[in-house]
Design a protein around this nucleic acid. Structure first.
Lengths: 320, 320
DNA sequence: CGGCATCATTGGATCGTTCAAGTTGCCGGA
DNA sequence: TCCGGCAACTTGAACGATCCAATGATGCCG
């Protein structure tokens, strides 16, 4: 198979290179008749744009980057997996490709940004695992690099677009479900205060209980099954427990057999053991991230950043 | 920050562009003294190769692609996750970047190959989930596209390099462990015959039992916790069960409480519930895939393809 | 000291695309 | 009739690297 360039197409269609380029990039400036002829030539030759050449001229690579993290606590690892899949799908539709990178620590990640930007002319980034005092967003913002975060900027000023899952709404839904099932003594098993996500998950449960005028009882544990189990044992009065993660929920199931338990993240573990859990709409979140990033990349972004809070859904199984 | 090109570096070092290029690509042809001067200029200017320009001239992109699959049965989803992380790491060290793509079906995947090859000049592919009658490998081989598979070519001729985990060795190790613990009636809970991976896992158990001169008893179920549980109930004599996956093992745990159970894949679920399981060396497998691919890409590959079978390890927990 | 091989270095051409600045042809108004 | 204005298309240059052929410098031998 010969190499098919824009020049090949031009000859076949009997026009100049630039006209072919116009048909591809700004079809409206070409007469419909010519446009159609060029399109036929493109199709019959199986022509495809050479991204490297385009990139050299325009400085845009049609590439996005996402960090792939080591499966940390493992049990929640598949969350990123599903997000990545959704993002790759959405990016393809929008004409972009997703590149992976790893990095240890925020500084290492910033060094990687620099490398990817100068070597590959990356068009944009999707950041995950935002946290308090995150230096990555300001670094990117200072250099006018388009980016979107999955996870809101905890503590930092809200100057960029982000997509997040409404964690509080998730635990609120779980709590309402338990209330509707007749429970009144609903406890909470959460993470130590300070993490944005964990605090929001507690808040959803607490406010729903307050609205119902019921007393609350909660305990705290670092994430993990064993630690969750020993903390759950201290929830003596509760007949039902809302948990900040599936790992904790698994611990609670072991420590308090027979009680109603709800987890968070709807991981594979939850499906496997029949744990009722709050499910994040990861494919949708990924799609929205791509939408927002595409707006930024096309320069048609609104002047004020967009913030999207997606509602999670409760997947009811055997444990509640 | 100004744009730093090879010309900027050349001026700073007082040499020509080509000499700078030689320092980068074939340092041995440059006199040590000059080489050092150029290297200093590169460092002080923070110069980095523009991959697009290089690619246009050389036709090589320094990009690899891997398919990211939808989390199928979910419980085993994080296997790909960990593999991807390892591959991204190894690729970075070797000077490559990993690009993701999704595709539905083998034909869709082949169409994507074509697109990635012509648009982005991809250098190579890493294939996962090889299966009987896989058309992807022959498509790539016909076009001389470098690729490596993670998973051996079941049934197909062994004409390309691959890396795989020795599934039989995994179940053999599990069986030996159970024998050493005093069990003699060890059953097997597997998938229906026909899948290469599943058959290998059965074989490891069967041959170890045969060596020990013990009778065997096994049942079959499609992958899944519930299906595993109902199949496991038919294993009436066994005091211990080796399973083809963690999902099946979870079913067995439910159906046969108190018996010794070993799963396969060491997924998050296994860690969470304390299930003894066979762990695949995914980071190493990814690294080896990258090594083999790098050989192909550098043209220093041996004439006969390399095949690597990596031994898995048994992670002993509460269930055995 | 000339001749010649060897090595280090140079300058121009090139990859495929898009940008910027043309050229052509047609229409309408003065 | 002439000319401005516009739409449709063409042409030459440029992006930043590497390849190739040619040049300059160096050392060795007779």
């Amino acid at each position: 198979m010969e190499k098919v360039t824009i020049a090949t197409v031009a000859v076949r269609a009997g026009v100049s290179r630039q006209t072919v380029s116009n048909v591809i990039n700004t079809p409206e400036v070409v007469r419909p008749e010519t446009r159609e002829r060029v399109r036929e030539a493109i199709a019959s030759l199986g022509y495809r744009v050479n991204q490297a050449a385009r990139q050299m001229r325009t400085g845009r690579s049609k590439l996005l980057a996402v960090r792939i993290e080591p499966a940390r606590d493992g049990i929640n690892g598949s969350v990123l997996d599903r997000f990545l899949h959704g993002l790759t799908d959405a990016a393809t539709v929008a004409g972009y490709r997703v590149m992976l990178y790893t990095a240890s620590g925020d500084d290492g990640e910033i060094a990687t940004y620099e490398e990817l930007l100068t070597e590959y002319d990356l068009d944009g980034f999707v950041l995950t695992s935002t946290h308090h005092g995150d230096p990555r967003t300001s670094w990117l913002a200072e250099r006018d690099v388009p980016f979107v975060t999955f996870g809101r900027p905890w503590g930092a000023p809200d100057t960029h677009s982000w997509v997040d899952v409404d964690n509080a709404a998730g635990t609120a839904a779980a709590t309402r479900h338990l209330l509707a099932t007749g429970h009144t003594r609903i406890g909470f098993l959460g993470w130590p205060a300070g993490s944005g996500v964990g605090d929001a998950r507690r808040e959803g449960w607490a406010s729903t209980m307050a609205e119902a005028g019921l007393p609350t009882e909660d305990v705290v544990a670092v994430d993990g099954v064993d630690s969750g189990a020993s903390a759950a044992e201290r929830l003596t009065n509760a007949t039902a427990v809302v948990c900040a993660s599936d790992s904790l929920a698994l611990g609670a199931m072991r420590a308090l057999p027979g009680r109603a338990i709800v987890g968070f993240d709807d991981t594979a573990v939850a499906r496997a053991v029949g744990l009722t859990s709050v499910s994040q709409p990861l494919a949708e979140a990924a799609g929205r991230c791509m939408d927002l990033l595409a707006e930024l990349l096309d320069g048609r972004a609104p002047t004020t950043p967009t913030h999207l809070l997606l509602p999670p859904s409760l997947v009811v199984r055997r444990t509640a």
